[in-house]
Design a protein around this nucleic acid. Sequence first.
DNA 1: CACTTGACCTGTCCGC
DNA 2: TGCGGACAGGTCAAGT
Length: 288
Amino acid sequence: MPELPEVETVRRGLKDLITSRTVASIKSDNPKSFPNSPVDVKKFLIGATIQDINRRAKVLLIYLSTDYALVIHLKMTGQLVFIGEKRFGAGHPTDSLIGRLPDRSTRVTITFTDSSRLYFNDQRKFGWMWLLPIAEVPNIDFMKKVGPEPLEADFSAKQFAARFTQRANTIIKAVLLDQTVVAGIGNIYADESLWSAKIHPGRLVKTITPKEFTTLYKKLRLIMNLAIEKGGSTDRNYVTAEGKKGSYLEFAQVFRREGLPCRRCQTTIIKFKCAGRGTHICPNCQVL
DNA sequence: CACTTGACCTGTCCGC
DNA sequence: TGCGGACAGGTCAAGT
């Protein structure tokens, strides 16, 4: 579930909540969730201050004062939830979480010197958190291969379309989901943008016209920006850094709307398997 | 080589 | 009510 808009929402929340806090200790239940050596952790994480938080594709980068970074992928069920203390006062959103965490999905707990905490929860244990030198971040496989950020101001419709043309004989949905083509798109926003552009997800890239690519580009950016505004999409697990749900699914046109009428033409939305994923379309608006 | 499928995990939901 | 099985979605490895 965490796609670009969800990870960006978490980034903004964390930037506000943990910047300038200093790490006092870290607890991890599972070497898969946090595989770093205790020596590295002691030297470069304990005592480090949070400087800044960036995002690349669906990956979060927490920069530390030690020139190391925590690199985090939430995969499907990951959460990063902050629980604070008096600094915020009564009524702060994170107050309501006190006592609820840790729970059985908690994989990593970072405690700051003021006793506030950041919990990395991940029901399905697919996510991970790495500690590595900031200078090495661009050299990890994922960063070397990942495509451009779709919401950057200088990312044009022309560039968008050009990234697809090398994949002429692949279905459009598979290419949209490919992180090396364009970064950050997952199942929800692939379905939503294809419906919005009236493109059937099973169409081969070579059958899609330049005009359709331009529409898809515009719709994708519109939808992702709106999703960020709404705090992302909460289907099951995803929550913001304050532990709140995102509300974008209230605005969704096809995702999880199987059996409901298309908001454009009233035809019943159907769900089927495409590119190995559950896929939602309006069979009238989106044809092969 | 390009593309598709399976594995990784756990919780939830559906049908019998 | 209990149980098996399908399903959820991101990415990488393995298979076609």
